[in-house]
Design a protein around this nucleic acid. Structure first.
Length: 382
RNA sequence: GGUGGGGUGGGUGAGUGGUUAAUACCAGCAGACUGUAAAUCUGCCGCCUUGACUGGCUACGCAGGUUCGAAUCCUGCCCCCACCA
């Protein structure tokens, strides 16, 4: 059985380019993975994702466990066939739902009991049951079941959730059995740099073929995010892929790649698309702004996506204003392409040994006056 | 011609004596969104004025009246809708 293998190909400072081989094809890193929680990247069809260069997509264990259920997906040939995506898939474990559905769950040492957000029924997920569900779903990469703490909770809870995540990581490793699937570990550490580094070293020593930084971009300010990210990334093994979960703002990705991250996933491009916002090299914009009413230029002159090659900004403005679904689809398409292309450019810059110049240039144009971009520059000492 | 109902801020439409510059929704103007309970949520939305959660002005078809006080009550007029003839 083909396994997931990671090979570093180039580096420039902490930034690096690699190749991840999976049973469903190779992936060049750094990579941005669009999120398809319910076995669909919202509003986009697989051929559209392929056309914009998306190589790797996410799905969610908690949501697919609820509907339509892992047995049905297995019966229908597994997640790849079910959603007709023949490229690599990564399944998140449901760990994020510990945060997003915080009011509907209870944690104990054995696992997490959720009150279904769909029908209120009680369901329990444990490290072992999550491994079983992820095996049935059959993604190329499964994620360990973790318990990230919310931003705003106190250090006692960071500590408890980090220690629990470590124990559960070992349980996940023991329970993981599917040979054509690899399991990535997730480190935590709350919002303390030393605890972050400690967690990264702990999880990094367990033998996972890849590691994720969890518990970030959960509402904390940027001057917290980047130091935490640096602490985590700096302590994870260099020879394995380093995946930053939930990161997706362009300035964040540029900073994170510069700090040595290889993989990202985020709902941001698709959610922004559905909510009428789009990325440009100058920053994020809202398409329904009156200033775009008669704008003949595409959303982003430098973009090569179908939307930007074909339609005026005025047309997108019109579609969104009259609530035509094509508008949300096209915006989603463009936003995902924007991040995929950002990673393409980052890889090229690393290969050319010019990552700092690339980051400096990008961050110099992308909302340069925003606190977010300033912190990204600071993280890279630009 | 008769009977009944109704005319409220850009639109639809609450409100039947004071706490009402006036509910709500839409439209309009902005903002937010980071391992998706999100095609969602939030703010503003008569005019002028102020550093300000400041001060003032105008407003519920039109005109007049009652009252300390009216979009709300009375009178007349204008207009709209339904039914009857």
């Amino acid at each position: 059985m083909a396994r997931v293998v990671f090979a570093l190909e180039a580096s420039d400072g902490a930034a690096r380019v690699g190749r991840l081989s999976t049973p469903h094809g190779p992936v060049e890193t750094p990579v941005f993975m669009p999120v398809g929680t319910q076995a669909t990247v919202k509003a986009l069809a697989p051929d559209e994702l392929r056309a914009i260069g998306a190589s790797f997509v996410l799905a969610n264990t908690y949501h697919l466990f609820l509907r339509p259920g892992p047995d049905l997906i297995a019966q229908l040939g597994g997640l790849h066939r079910f959603m007709a995506w023949d490229g690599p898939i990564l399944t998140d474990s449901g760990g994020f739902q510990v945060i997003s559905l915080a009011d509907l769950r209870k944690i104990d040492e054995s696992g997490v009991t959720f009150k279904s957000h769909v029908d209120g029924t009680t369901l329990k997920l444990s490290p072992e049951s999550v491994m079983e569900v992820e095996a049935k779903l059959g993604a190329d990469v499964a994620m360990a079941f973790d318990t990230p703490p919310r931003w705003g909770t106190d250090p006692t809870e960071w500590k408890a959730s980090t220690a629990r995540t470590h124990r559960w990581a070992e349980r996940c490793l023991r329970a993981h059995a599917r040979a054509d699937q690899v399991l990535f570990g997730i480190c935590q550490g709350g919002f303390d740099a030393a605890a972050r580094a400690d967690s990264a070293r702990t999880v990094g020593s367990l033998g996972f073929p890849g590691h994720a930084v969890g518990g970030l971009s959960v509402g904390e300010p940027k001057d917290v995010l980047f130091p935490m990210l640096a602490a985590s990334l700096g302590a994870l093994p260099c020879d394995r892929p380093r995946y930053v979960m939930g990161l997706g703002a362009p300035e964040d990705l540029v900073a994170a790649v510069g700090l040595g991250a290889d993989m990202f996933d985020c709902v941001l491009p698709t959610r922004l698309g559905r909510n009428g916002a789009f990325f440009t090299p100058e920053g994020r914009r809202n398409i329904d702004n009156a200033r775009f009413r008669a704008e003949a230029a595409p959303l982003d002159r430098s973009c090569d996506c179908y939307c930007c090659r074909t339609f005026s900004t005025a047309y997108l403005h019109h579609l969104v204003r009259v609530e035509e679904i094509l508008g949300l689809r096209l915006l989603s398409l463009h936003n995902v392409r924007f991040l995929v292309r950002l990673m393409e450019r980052a890889r090229a810059a690393v290969r050319a040994g010019a990552y700092r110049a690339f980051a400096d240039d990008f961050l110099g144009r992308y909302a340069p006056d925003s606190a977010s971009t300033r912190e990204a520059r600071r993280a890279l000492r630009l």
